[in-house]
Write a protein that binds this DNA or RNA. Structure first.
Lengths: 225, 225
DNA sequence: TCTCCTATGTTGGAATTCCAACAACTGTTT
DNA sequence: AAACAGTTGTTGGAATTCCAACATAGGAGA
């Protein structure tokens, strides 16, 4: 158990909480360490939604099945990442997703109800924990907002430019570096890599853009295209 | 001021808080009621991100400008709705958006820092408020997750079916009613209304679907298309 | 009933995307 | 240098979407 404290203190969920407080906190929250074999579920859809999980080792997958059993992968989580907050905090009765171990994994399960309501005046880490959850959810919200804005553009070119303009703004310069490669960027924007490549070439030839690898430079010629 | 308490108690942000507690709470949180004329800003991009706003009357618009000044509308808020939580809770230094009044409006501004940290042991509504914010953010997260999942499908048909399958599942029946009209549904899915209409017709002719207005019925024939 | 209005469905050609196959470039290893 | 793997750019035809214009249906009100 103690062996995982060094992982936990690095996890965003526990940011600001000292390692020596960890044990008391886990006790207060009713934390349970569980081992899950590769392919086995951490929990299944329909489980009461009051769990927050933290991956300690291995890796897990959050999946959702539709009405006809077609399965889609919502996210893949590495050690240190947490899952389930959104469902538990949204006030759902039951989990709308299942979580499976992709490798043999260790997972810490917390009871979300205890996090949100109990004893907030005695444990000082309690409000810290809530703020961390809040911060995580809020950041995901912002990330989603951006992604949806890019994806809502009609054409590949518009999606790409919307993204690049945002990057320029965030990094405060028309010259900047994007955090991923072409394929990953295309996937993120919901476009085809080859179509995106073609658009980039066109923009280059038109003198509106320069790029090499993950480095981009926008020329100051834009208004509304 | 008191005149707005009846609006506030209906607002999701203050759900569970009694009208008689409202005054004390607003004092504790440093709430400020402000009037904004049509077209004027509630706040501008760059303002320190620690505000949460609640629309009391009129209506406001959240807008974001890109690096070259192209403006896009992120959301439109009616009385009772709140804004700014995501930015404040995400730990941003400054607001990345501006908020403008679309009509003459009354707005309540709260200091998010006070909500999250102060005096959580004395005011019992404090933890309620935090839970309400948490719940709101979590619900938006789930909504975004779904929307992104639909929009990530390649074709109009796939986007539509992903949505319909989800609706069937959520409503627990292959027969269900969608909460909006064709045009709004198309906009939400990021497709063209006419293309969507065409797909619906095809599915109907293929006997996979029946629909009239907002009523839909999926036939049990699907596996993976 | 007739008219108006809005929501929805239909259609055809232009524009765009998708997909597969391949070419060019880069960095690494041998 | 040569071989190799991985990333990025190019291209052409099939599939799909976009867009405008029009058709149809149903409801509200005169």
């Amino acid at each position: 158990m103690e062996q995982y404290f060094s992982i936990l203190v690095q996890c965003p969920l526990f940011s600001g909480i000292e390692q020596e407080d960890m044990k008391a906190m886990l006790k207060c929250l009713g934390g349970k360490f569980i081992s899950v074999s590769k392919g086995d579920p951490v929990f299944l859809e329909g489980t009461p939604a009051q769990l927050v999980g933290v991956v300690l080792s291995g890796g897990v997958q959050v999946v959702q099945d539709d009405y006809y059993g077609n399965r889609s992968v919502l996210s893949i989580l590495q050690p240190g990442e947490s899952f389930g907050e959104a469902f538990s905090c949204a006030g759902l009765e039951n989990m709308p997703v299942s979580v499976f171990a992709m490798k043999d994994s260790q997972v810490l399960l917390l009871n979300c109800g205890r996090i949100l309501t109990l004893c907030s005046h005695t444990c000082h880490f309690h409000s810290l924990l809530i703020q961390n959850i809040l911060k995580g959810l809020a950041q995901k919200n912002l990330a989603f907002t951006q992604k949806v804005r890019y994806m809502s553009q009609k054409t590949t070119k518009e999606k790409l430019l919307a993204y690049l303009f945002d990057q320029a703004k965030q990094q405060g310069s028309a010259e900047f570096v994007v955090p991923c490669e072409r394929q990953a960027l295309a996937d993120y924007l919901g476009v085809e890599r080859t179509a995106m490549s073609a658009e980039i070439s066109k923009l280059k030839k038109a003198g509106l853009l320069d790029t090499k690898g993950s480095w981009f430079c926008l020329k100051h010629v834009y208004q509304n295209n």
